[in-house]
Amino acid sequence: MNLSIIVPAYNEEKTIRSVLEKLKTLELLPPFGKEIIVVNDCSSDDTEKVVRDFIAANPDLSLKLHSHPVNKGKGAALHTGIQEASGDYVIVQDADLEYDPAEFNILLKPVLDGYADVVYGSRFMGGNAHRILFFWHTIGNKFLTFLSNMFSNLNLTDMETCYKLFRADIIKKIDLKEKRFGFEPEVTAKVAKISGIRIYEVGISYYGRTYEEGKKINWKDGFRAIYCILRYGLLG
């Protein structure tokens, strides 16, 4: 089996190499192999050059680069990555250092045990390390998860998490629309509507960034998330 790791990247020249180094040395639970798909969302810095140099230095690594000619947003980058993925399962890895790829195996375990089709990595459960940052950001995340759960009838603790693992045949059939951070509530609402799907949640670590360190999501994305929860939760 193969795991497709989608890395959406926009102006991440400072961290993208470190992420790729982690992914290169990552040992997944057997029988999983890996492919890495970086989607450069028209970065204005040297993100693309860093990735191309990394590919040149690691010719044996299954690493593909796709570049958008214009900036479209994280959701659009994920759409591209999902379309290009050839693995049996798909997972999202941000191009920063907020999440640790070594914890992919925590998400894979329910799959390998035969329990799960979709696994979310929650920053709000378990005893893993968490950087202490923004009070209102945490409250906002919990509110959005609560609202999402109301419409999806799920009991997630972290709908907005980056770490979402999907069976490839499931995620490829979902008609995704949201181009920016609305991907999270949209995909959650649409996955929840699939009959017979088995969704699990596991605790993960979180090494959050400040806005000075490159964090991009803002209050406007929060309002868009509310719209997406209502839009896709009610109408699909």
Score class of each variant (00 low, 15 high):
residue 1 M to I: 09
residue 4 S to R: 01
residue 6 I to M: 06
residue 6 I to H: 04
residue 7 V to L: 08
residue 8 P to A: 11
residue 9 A to K: 07
residue 10 Y to G: 07
residue 11 N to P: 08
residue 12 E to C: 09
residue 13 E to A: 09
residue 14 K to G: 11
residue 15 T to C: 10
residue 15 T to E: 06
residue 18 S to M: 14
residue 21 E to S: 13
residue 24 K to V: 08
residue 24 K to N: 09
residue 25 T to Y: 12
residue 26 L to S: 07
residue 26 L to Y: 09
residue 29 L to N: 10
residue 30 P to Q: 09
residue 31 P to V: 01
residue 31 P to K: 04
residue 32 F to Q: 00
residue 34 K to S: 03
residue 37 I to V: 12
residue 39 V to T: 07
residue 40 N to L: 08
residue 40 N to Q: 11
residue 41 D to R: 00
residue 43 S to D: 07
residue 45 D to N: 14
residue 48 E to F: 08
residue 48 E to R: 14
residue 51 V to Q: 01
residue 57 A to P: 05
residue 57 A to R: 10
residue 58 N to S: 10
residue 59 P to S: 03
residue 59 P to F: 00
residue 60 D to C: 05
residue 60 D to W: 09
residue 61 L to A: 05
residue 63 L to N: 00
residue 65 L to M: 08
residue 67 S to E: 06
residue 70 V to E: 14
residue 72 K to W: 03
residue 72 K to G: 10
residue 77 A to F: 03
residue 78 L to Q: 03
residue 78 L to P: 03
residue 79 H to W: 08
residue 80 T to Y: 07
residue 81 G to Y: 01
residue 83 Q to W: 12
residue 86 S to H: 13
residue 86 S to V: 14
residue 87 G to Y: 11
residue 87 G to R: 12
residue 88 D to T: 00
residue 89 Y to G: 02
residue 96 D to Q: 04
residue 99 Y to V: 13
residue 99 Y to T: 12
residue 100 D to W: 05
residue 104 F to P: 05
residue 106 I to V: 15
residue 107 L to P: 03
residue 107 L to H: 00
residue 109 K to S: 11
residue 109 K to E: 15
residue 111 V to T: 07
residue 112 L to W: 04
residue 112 L to H: 02
residue 115 Y to H: 12
residue 116 A to H: 00
residue 117 D to A: 05
residue 117 D to C: 08
residue 120 Y to L: 14
residue 124 F to A: 02
residue 126 G to F: 04
residue 126 G to S: 05
residue 128 N to W: 11
residue 130 H to P: 02
residue 135 F to S: 12
residue 135 F to H: 11
residue 137 H to P: 08
residue 140 G to V: 10
residue 143 F to A: 08
residue 143 F to T: 07
residue 143 F to L: 10
residue 144 L to P: 00
residue 145 T to G: 01
residue 146 F to N: 05
residue 148 S to G: 15
residue 150 M to L: 15
residue 151 F to I: 02
residue 151 F to H: 04
residue 151 F to V: 10
residue 156 L to D: 02
residue 157 T to I: 01
residue 157 T to P: 02
residue 157 T to W: 04
residue 158 D to G: 04
residue 158 D to M: 07
residue 163 Y to M: 10
residue 165 L to D: 08
residue 167 R to Q: 10
residue 167 R to S: 06
residue 167 R to T: 06
residue 169 D to G: 09
residue 172 K to N: 12
residue 173 K to P: 06
residue 173 K to N: 14
residue 174 I to T: 13
residue 175 D to L: 13
residue 177 K to S: 13
residue 180 R to L: 10
residue 180 R to C: 08
residue 180 R to K: 14
residue 181 F to V: 02
residue 182 G to W: 00
residue 183 F to Y: 11
residue 184 E to S: 11
residue 186 E to P: 05
residue 187 V to I: 13
residue 187 V to A: 05
residue 188 T to H: 00
residue 191 V to E: 00
residue 194 I to T: 14
residue 196 G to D: 09
residue 197 I to S: 13
residue 197 I to H: 13
residue 199 I to M: 04
residue 199 I to F: 02
residue 199 I to G: 00
residue 200 Y to I: 02
residue 206 Y to K: 07
residue 207 Y to I: 04
residue 207 Y to F: 13
residue 209 R to D: 13
residue 209 R to Y: 15
residue 215 K to M: 12
residue 220 K to P: 03
residue 220 K to V: 08
residue 220 K to H: 13
residue 221 D to K: 01
residue 223 F to V: 13
residue 224 R to G: 04
residue 225 A to F: 01
residue 227 Y to P: 04
residue 228 C to L: 08
residue 229 I to T: 12
residue 233 G to Q: 01
residue 236 G to Y: 05
residue 236 G to A: 11
